[in-house]
Amino acid sequence: MEKIIRKDILEMIHSAKSGHPGGALSAVEIMSALYFSDVFRYDVNDSAMENRDRFILSKGHAAPVLYAVLGNAGFFDKKHFKTLRKFGSILQGHPHAKHLNGCDMSAGSLGQGLSIAVGKALALRMKNIDANVYCLVGDGELQEGQIWEATMSAAQLKLDNLCLIVDYNGIQLDGNVADIKDVYPLKEKFESFNFNVIEVDGHNKEELIKAYKMFKANVGKPTAIIAKTVKGKGVSFMENNANWHGLAPNDEELKLALKEIEGGLK
């Protein structure tokens, strides 16, 4: 499944001639461990099911990974992939929930998703609905102050039905996160903010599933899963290269990339 998701991401962005491959490829296992396992409760035939789990993509530019996952899960026809970023498409450059079955919230302006997830987790608790809220942020995104406002709210409210996942790929648009505005160390930061913190290899699906299960078993605190990833994972020339944060592959690059993906992760 991860090979299919990577292939879909690259073909989508190639067809759109713009988009963000780096941060989509780094989050493939994070997403597939959630949606293609027994972790995340959903029903493609009833996307408004009350006790479904909720997923908030806060790093909205990673839209292609969300689209690939939702499409492969069956929320919409995969034929839409080739319409990414095009006029009239359900697949907007950044997710627009109104037009996208299976998407809980629009995103695009960074730093907002965790507050929304706090509101959702609180609402579920108020309504006695047994469901979890997952929120994916980038590590560069942690530079947004609102993330820390929301972190304090989640801990204050003891939202143990809330799972923050940090796609810790170390790179943002302008370069290395540590060189621009250092957000590390992440484990200690979130622990000091009263989170239950789990560190994990963000490209190891089994480890990720185990981490999600640890989150579900955890009581009294929100959880942060720090998933160490590689930006552009799976395509050697995109890996750890900030230039591929927001660049579409040309025909030749796509061919090379798909060949590498077929060979599997190194």
């Binding site: 965790l114 929304i116 509101g119 959702k120 987790a121 609180l122 609402a123 406002e149």
Partner: peptide, 25 residues
């Protein structure tokens, strides 16, 4: 009642999350 502290951005985000689940904030 919920006091979110001195954090207006979070106030609006949490309210948005609540509203998306059918509570009127």
């Amino acid at each position: 009642f919920l006091d979110v502290g001195i954090s207006e951005q979070d106030l609006i985000g949490i309210s948005a999350g609540l509203a998306s689940e059918g509570i009127v904030p």
